[in-house]
């Protein structure tokens, strides 16, 4: 006898916004792994093996912003401050902020359960997210 599948079909599961955000949290995490791995490989190509220690490489990987390599032995910052790396860093800010702010909403929902409270949380989180993305991208392109 074939065992019955434990997962519900998509139509019975309810495809709502929270479900989409659940998927988004997973996919944005995967995107961040890709971006971080990409930045670490980029750092190694640019000579990090001789000029940076593991902690410095990881710091660059978590946010490929040229101010993160200031205190290392890298002789010339120019290759680390190209528009290309600024775009990679901007993409990481975008994905990470959305992922992080949604995480904060998930935590808040564990403690704030009234519909009014939750809509206030959502409003604040959207304003906060847009502000942090704007400021973060500004810092990356002016640093």
């Amino acid at each position: 006898m074939a065992t019955k599948s434990k997962s519900l079909p998509l139509t019975k599961r309810g495809l709502n916004f929270e479900m989409l955000m659940w998927i988004f949290t997973r996919l944005s995490a995967l995107a961040m792994y890709a971006l971080i791995l990409f930045a670490i490989i980029g750092a190694l190509v640019m000579g990090a093996r001789n000029q940076m220690n593991l902690a410095d490489v990881l710091r660059w990987g978590f946010m490929p912003n040229n101010t993160h390599v200031l205190s290392t032995d890298v002789p010339d910052l120019a290759p680390w401050a190209t528009p290309f790396w600024r775009f990679v860093a901007s993409a990481l800010v975008l994905v990470a902020t959305a992922h992080g702010v949604h995480g904060l909403v998930v935590i808040a929902d564990d403690y704030i359960v009234s519909p009014r409270g939750r809509s206030i949380v959502r409003f604040i989180s959207i304003v906060f997210m847009l502000a942090m993305i704007g400021i973060g991208v500004y810092v990356i392109w002016t640093a």
Binding site: T67, G100, G103, I107, I135, A143
Partner: peptide, 20 residues
């Protein structure tokens, strides 16, 4: 996971604002 997530959210917010 929750503690780290909260910690990062606070850290990154303050870090971005400080850099700004």
């Amino acid at each position: 996971h929750r503690l780290g997530g909260l910690g990062m959210a606070i850290f990154i917010t303050v870090h971005i604002l400080a850099s700004f």
